[in-house]
């Protein structure tokens, strides 16, 4: 899970409709309402994917290739639907499930919507996560909330949180379980291996890899490698110390 900023800059027809509903304090239509769904679901989905870089908001698996997220796919506030666009996977997910239904009736609230992998959306089902884990929250920092086991390629709650905020620690632990973030650890490891392989033969300086999925795990991995390297250099005995 990484921090994102959500800007609804292309799906303007939907955004105007949603803002009108909110300004007039009108209840939203049901999320399954067929006409509303037909009008806006695809636009919301593609706009969210654009904000999320085409990745699942929770697992960071790729849901669609980057070429489907370019500006030229949009015309007059609507996404131009083409056959090839079926490649975009995932479900529109309600971060706070309570907003989806009565009495709150805010099923189409932009702020509450994210794109998630279908399997994760099913697993999350009607469960809601702690609001502090919302990736658009100004204070959201995955490197403060999570830890990453580079041997098992599993996410863990940051152990430091136990002493600072036990409720938040349990919320992170619960989110990892609810979202089954570690059920795809082998896929994640495979990608990280490929990134390291790319870096090892990269001609660029500093070397770069095409990080197509799992950017948070990759960042954790890099940080830990840098820490290790730093630690090793600290342990080297300088010639001065010999003297």
């Amino acid at each position: 899970m990484r921090k994102i900023t959500k800007i609804c800059d292309l799906s303007t027809i939907y955004k105007q409709w949603e803002e009108n509903l909110e300004a007039n304090n009108n209840p939203h239509p049901d999320f399954e309402h067929s006409t509303t769904r037909k009008d806006f679901y695809q636009d919301v989905k593609m706009q969210l994917l654009r904000c999320q870089g085409g990745l699942c908001i929770y697992s960071e698996q790729r849901l669609c290739p980057l070429e489907l997220l370019t500006d030229n796919k949009w015309q007059e506030g609507k996404y131009i639907y083409q056959d090839q666009d079926k490649q975009a996977e995932g479900d529109v997910e309600h971060f706070d499930d309570k907003l989806k239904k009565a009495p709150l009736n805010k099923a189409w609230l932009w702020d509450n919507l994210f794109m998630a992998h279908h399997t994760i959306n099913i697993r999350k089902s009607t469960k809601s996560l702690d609001l502090r884990l919302k990736p658009t929250n100004p204070n959201f920092d995955p490197f403060y909330l999570f830890d990453y086991d580079c041997t098992k390629h599993e996410f863990r709650p940051n152990e430091n949180l136990v002493h600072i905020d036990k409720i938040l620690y349990d919320a992170v632990k619960d989110a990892i379980k609810v979202l089954s973030l570690n059920s795809i650890k082998w896929k994640r490891k495979k990608n990280l291996i490929c990134y390291v392989a790319e870096i090892s033969i990269s001609k660029e300086n500093p070397p770069k890899a095409d990080v197509y999925e799992y950017p948070t795990a990759w960042e954790f991995w890099q940080r830990q490698q840098n820490q290790k390297a730093h630690h090793q250099s600290d342990n080297l005995v300088s010639p001065d110390e010999y003297e």
């Binding site: 291996i193 392989a197 001609k203």
Partner: peptide, 29 residues
């Protein structure tokens, strides 16, 4: 050997094989 179109193409092919090999072995380089 440095950047040339030929070495880049060759590297791309070998890199794909290398990645497959590493992921089969489940090891880092």
């Amino acid at each position: 050997l440095g950047h040339t179109a030929k070495t880049n193409d060759e590297m791309r092919v070998l890199l794909d094989e290398y990645k497959k090999s590493l992921t089969r072995l489940q090891i880092f380089p």
